Amino acid sequence: MTVAAADTEATTTTSRRKLDPGIPVAGAVVVILAIVFFVGGKDQGLVGQAIVSGLLLGGVYALISVGLTLIFGVLGIVNFAQGAMLTLAMYIVYALSTAGLPVYLATILAVPVMFLFGMVVQATLLTKLTIGGSHEGPLLVTLGLSLLIINVLLMVFGGRPKAVAAPVDGSLSILGTVASWPRVIAFLGAAVVAVALKAVLDRTKLGLSIRAVASNSEGAKLVGVDIGRVYALTFGIGAACVAVAGGLMTPFTSLTPSVGEQFTILAFVIVVLGGLGSIVGAMVGGLVIGLVQTVGALYLPGTGSLILVFAVFVMVLFLKPEGLYGGRR
Rank of each mutant, 00 (worst) to 15 (best):
P24I: 10
P24N: 12
F117E: 05
T98N: 13
G48Y: 02
A95T: 15
Q49A: 13
L139N: 07
Q44N: 11
G83M: 03
L105N: 04
V30K: 00
L109M: 12
L126F: 05
V121I: 14
G41A: 09
Q44E: 14
P102E: 08
V141N: 07
T87H: 01
T124I: 03
A26R: 01
H135C: 04
V30Q: 00
L88I: 03
V121E: 06
E136G: 14
V121P: 01
P21I: 04
S65C: 11
K42P: 04
D43K: 01
I131Y: 03
Q122L: 06
L125T: 07
G48K: 04
L33K: 00
T127L: 11
L63E: 10
V111Y: 04
L46I: 13
V39E: 12
L109R: 03
G58R: 01
P138F: 05
A89M: 05
Y104W: 09
A110R: 06
V93S: 04
T124V: 08
G133E: 09
K128D: 15
T130G: 10
P21W: 08
L140A: 08
V31H: 01
I64F: 03
G100L: 06
A81D: 02
G22L: 08
A99W: 11
A106S: 14
T87E: 05
T87L: 02
I51W: 01
T69W: 01
G83L: 05
G76S: 05
V30G: 04
E136Q: 15
T124E: 11
G48P: 06
Q44S: 14
L139A: 15
M85S: 10
G27W: 00
L101E: 08
V36A: 13
G137Y: 12
V30D: 01
V78I: 15
H135P: 01
A106D: 05
M114Y: 06
A50G: 10
P102I: 01
V25P: 02
P21Q: 07
G67H: 00
N79P: 02
V93L: 03
L125F: 13
F37Q: 10
A84F: 07
L139Q: 10
I35V: 15
S134A: 15
V103H: 08
F80P: 03
P112T: 02
L105K: 04
S97C: 09
E136D: 14
V52R: 03
F37H: 12
L75T: 13
V30F: 09
P112E: 01
G132R: 02
A50F: 03
M85Y: 00
G83D: 05
A99G: 12
A95Q: 13
V113Y: 02
L56D: 07
G45Y: 07
T87R: 00
V39N: 11
I64S: 04
L96N: 07
L68H: 04
T98R: 14
P112F: 00
E136L: 15
M114C: 13
G41E: 11
G133L: 11
T107N: 06
A34I: 01
Q82C: 07
F117N: 06
K128G: 14
L116Y: 04
I64C: 13
G132S: 09
I108V: 15
V25A: 12
